[in-house]
């Protein structure tokens, strides 16, 4: 019995871990919603995630099997046979330094394009540079949006005809849009889980964030940086409209916003 512990490390725990991982999508514990990203950049992020996942799974299986195997052989070594006296192997050391090194370097370089696309101004899609639709203002504990009046562009300073909304961000679907992210008080983080978008809102900074909703629909927006006791309450929604409806919606919002409540 004492010797059979290797089974625990080779058979039971890693296998269980793999089984749980394999079951994850079926149990809806994986990516939110249907598991597919709702934004274009999210698709790339998912792809990179799966690349890493595959590499990691292979490494996980490899190392666990190797460890289970050496545990098995080491525990079943006859009592009269001495352990293998070895201080290491230079060639092996070289192999397991260089190969993982190459793989890791590849991984690092493979990531850079998506990162540049997401954050580097020069690599933004063209439309994202011009299509600045709203200022998202985080505050304890809600999201306040400021839109320019229909037909106008967003100014850094609030304008008299700007439109405001709380916990609702309306965007056109199918085109990259940029929001200006800022905070009125403490640090917050603009997190769109189904779109795989996240960016901290830092006091004193205005940070542009672009994303493209693939389809019209409603997507959750939450806060991902501790902002006080009500951190968990900062739920909002991003509503992506078909482009034509978006224009109409903005017009109706403008009307509602400047309603004088006069009934003839």
């Amino acid at each position: 019995m004492k010797r059979l512990w290797w089974i625990f490390f080779l058979m039971i725990w890693p296998v269980l871990a793999l089984v749980v991982c394999a079951m994850t999508p079926g149990l809806k514990w994986g990516f939110p919603g249907d598991g597919l990203s709702d934004s274009t950049i999210g698709v790339e992020i998912d792809h990179l995630f799966y690349v890493i996942l595959i590499i990691c799974t292979v490494v996980f299986i490899g190392t666990q099997v190797a460890m289970g195997y050496v545990l098995w052989t080491a525990s079943s070594r006859p009592a009269d046979r001495r352990a293998w006296y070895s201080h290491g192997n230079h060639k092996l050391e070289m192999i397991w330094t260089v190969i993982p090194g190459i793989i890791l370097l590849f991984l690092a370089l493979y990531q850079t394009r998506t990162w540049a696309e997401f954050r580097m101004n020069s690599a933004y899609p063209e439309a994202a540079k011009t299509n600045i639709i709203a200022e998202v203002n985080a505050r304890q504990f809600e999201w306040r949006m400021r839109y320019p009046a229909p037909g106008k562009t967003l100014e850094r300073k609030p304008q008299i005809d700007d439109m405001y909304q709380v916990n609702e961000l309306h965007v056109p679907a199918g085109t990259p849009v940029t929001i200006q992210l800022r905070t009125q008080d403490v640090q917050h983080s603009f997190f769109l889980p189904t779109m795989r978008i996240k960016q901290d809102a830092v006091p004193g900074m205005i940070i542009p964030v672009w994303f493209e909703a693939k389809e019209p629909g409603e997507y959750p927006l939450v806060c991902a940086e501790l902002c006080g006791w009500g951190h968990y309450k900062m739920g909002a929604i991003v509503i992506a409209h078909p482009p034509a409806e978006y224009e109409a919606y903005m017009k109706s919002l403008h009307e509602e916003q400047f309603e004088d409540g006069y009934i003839e």
Binding site: L53, I55, C56, L104, L107, Q111, F118, I197, Q199, A224
Partner: peptide, 16 residues
């Protein structure tokens, strides 16, 4: 699991 977070684009999603 650290590698996931070291990769910036993936970290955009899983950060925090």
């Amino acid at each position: 699991s650290g590698i996931f977070m070291a990769a910036v684009p993936v970290d955009i999603y899983i950060h925090d």
